[in-house]
Structure formats: structure tokens, C-alpha cells
């Protein structure tokens, strides 16, 4: 309620400033939500797992306690590391922040809408991953190199699938702008049930799991160096650098789950059609819808992980090739079936 009343106080100035100001507020809210909420999502997912495994769990706030402690610890530059090692956490966190700002999670009428391009977002995610892989290589340890090589293998299979599956959705929208795609789906919700959209949804869900290093592709809580992918690259990071990396991983998971929610369950995303108070209410609904959708998707993912074991490393390309095939079928379906309809 306090959020509503404070928004009401500032609405007089907003009416004069026009829809751009509302879009700006929505974008700022979206970034704040991802920055604050990403560790909470990780905590929620750990808590769901703990409860299903019969444990009590550390609480939803534990990732924030971990981050606070890491920020107070001493930073260490291991002997022999250079600028790629020091730059990687900053690039990873920076790209995660930019993606969190441009992707249409809360609103499609953001002032950064022109940057919310399918290719730009995929490239930004890849830039973060490559920076971290270089940081892992830079340590010169066996596990750093091994983790980097595995991460790049997964990346090479994941990026085309993200591109192709969102491309299947963009064919009908006639644009690779994510905001346009989300807006069009929200205007005509039955599109979600079309074969192209369903195939793309499954492909994108699989790719989200692989990109964020969850079971069955990677185990985020493993202690076995030989099975690690993401963890093996960050073994040498400590203190504030590690805090940045852990926050960025959580933020990427939040953004990808949010994007999945926006693309296939677009209800509640503000479109910027209304003016004045109506636009503000739409933004608040968008915030609530984004938080609820991401939390539900995260809980589903965590519950699914309880029932699964990690795949053998050599079977992961098969899984990802399967998801690429689904994405390809989605594109084919969107061309052939669009002609019939």
C-alpha cells in the first residue's frame, strides 16, 4: 500500500512529463527488482530444495548474508593472474545489469526499448560468459582451464538455440525487438498455444537451465571438481570478486526466467498504452506479475531438480542438440503454419 500512495504523490508531476517518465520509472524499478530480488530467488530455490529433501533450510535471506560477508572479506589476486582475471567479474556483473535493464520484464515501453533486441541480449549474455571463461583460463590452474573449456562448449550449443527459438517468435512479430514480441503476444494470448510457440518455449526452457548451470547440465552446489562447469571457473575467486560473480549468476537466472515468463506468459507486463495514473498502476501490476511469475518458475525449476541427477558431461551435447532441434522445428512451424492461418 505504501508503494501505491507514494506513486500517487508523484503522479501530478508525471502527467506533465508524459509516458517517457513512467517508462523510466518502470525500467528503474525493474533493475532494482532484479538487483535485490536475484539473490532472494536463489535463496527461495535453495529453500524449496531443502524442504523437499526433508531439511529445514537456511532461509530465503541466506544468499544476501553470504554476499554481505563476501564483500567484507579480503580480496586476493592469485599469483600469476592478470587483467582478464580482475576484469571478468566486472564484465559479467555489468552485462547482467545491462540485460536486466533492457529486457522487457516489467514493461515493454522502456526508454531502452530500442536496445532490447534479440541479438543484442544474446550477445551480452555471451560476452559475460566469455569474460568469465577467460578469467578462469587466466588463473592457469587445471580446473580453471577445464571449467572454461566446458563452459564454452555449452555456450556454443546454447547461444544458437536462444537465437533460433526467439527467432521463431519474432517471425510473426516481424521484428527481433523483444518488447514488440511480448506486446504482440499480450494482445493476442492464444498465440502462446500455437505449435511454434510451444516448441520454442520448451527449447528456451532447456537452454535457460543450461545457461544458468542448473541440474541436469551443471550442479551449482557440487564439491566434486571433476563434474564442475561453472564452479570450476570461479574456484580461484574470493571476497568481493566472488560476491560479484555469485550475484551476476543469480541475476542472469532471474533475467532468463523473467524473459521466459514475459515471452510465454506475458500477462501483466505493462505495455505503456495507458496514461497518467493508469500507466503507474500498470507498472505496479507489471512489477507484481514479474515477481510472481519468476518466483513460481524458480520454484518449479528447484522442485524439478530434486527429481533429477546431473547428466554425464558427454550426454549434455545430446540434450542441447535436442533443444536446438525443437527450436528449429519451431521456426519451421512458424513459417509453414503461419501461411495456413
Amino acid at each position: 500500500m505504501t508503494g501505491l500512495s507514494s506513486a500517487g504523490l508523484s503522479s501530478a508531476g508525471l502527467n506533465a512529463a508524459g509516458p517517457d517518465a513512467v517508462g523510466l520509472i518502470a525500467t528503474v524499478l525493474q533493475v532494482v527488482l532484479v538487483v535485490v530480488g536475484a539473490p532472494l530467488l536463489t535463496g527461495l530455490m535453495r529453500q524449496v530444495r531443502a524442504r523437499m529433501e526433508g531439511r529445514a533450510g537456511a532461509g530465503v535471506l541466506q544468499p544476501w548474508r553470504d554476499l554481505r560477508k563476501l564483500l567484507r572479506k579480503e580480496p586476493i589476486d592469485p599469483r600469476g593472474t592478470g587483467w582478464p582475471f580482475r576484469l571478468a567479474p566486472l564484465v559479467l556483473a555489468g552485462t547482467a545489469l545491462v540485460v536486466a535493464a533492457v529486457v522487457p520484464l516489467v514493461t515493454t515501453a522502456s526508454p531502452l526499448d530500442s536496445a532490447a533486441d534479440l541479438f543484442a541480449v544474446t550477445a551480452l549474455l555471451a560476452l559475460g560468459s566469455v569474460a568469465l571463461a577467460l578469467g578462469g583460463l587466466d588463473t592457469g590452474t587445471a580446473f580453471g582451464g577445464m571449467g572454461a573449456s566446458r563452459e564454452v562448449t555449452v555456450l556454443a550449443l546454447v547461444e544458437p538455440t536462444i537465437l533460433v527459438s526467439v527467432f521463431a517468435l519474432s517471425v510473426r512479430a516481424g521484428s527481433t525487438n523483444l518488447g514488440t514480441i511480448v506486446g504482440l503476444t499480450e494482445a493476442d494470448p492464444m498465440r502462446v498455444l500455437s505449435p511454434a510457440s510451444l516448441l520454442a518455449a520448451v527449447a528456451l526452457a532447456l537452454v535457460t537451465i543450461a545457461e544458468t548451470g542448473r541440474i541436469p547440465v551443471d550442479n551449482p552446489s557440487t564439491h566434486l571438481e571433476l563434474t564442475m562447469i561453472h564452479e570450476a571457473m570461479v574456484l580461484e575467486y574470493s571476497g568481493p570478486d566472488l560476491a560479484l560473480i555469485e550475484w551476476a549468476s543469480a541475476a542472469r537466472l532471474t533475467v532468463l526466467l523473467g524473459l521466459l515468463g514475459s515471452l510465454f506468459l506475458p500477462w501483466g507486463v505493462a505495455t505503456g498504452g495507458a496514461a497518467g495514473m493508469g500507466a503507474l498502476v500498470a507498472v505496479l501490476v507489471g512489477v507484481a506479475a514479474f515477481a510472481a511469475k519468476t518466483a513460481v518458475l524458480g520454484m518449479l525449476l528447484a522442485a524439478g531438480e530434486v527429481f533429477m541427477a546431473k547428466l554425464r558431461l558427454f550426454r549434455i551435447p545430446e540434450l542441447l542438440a535436442g533443444s536446438f532441434l525443437l527450436a528449429l522445428l519451431a521456426v519451421a512451424a512458424s513459417y509453414f503454419l503461419a501461411g495456413g492461418a
Binding site: 564439491h223 564442475m228 564452479e231 580461484e236 575467486y237
Partner: peptide
């Protein structure tokens, strides 16, 4: 929590 690296 148990972790995999002394740096963590």
C-alpha cells in the same frame, strides 16, 4: 556450508 575451494 561446505565449499569446494579454500578461496571461497
Amino acid at each position: 556450508r561446505l565449499v569446494a575451494s579454500p578461496r571461497h
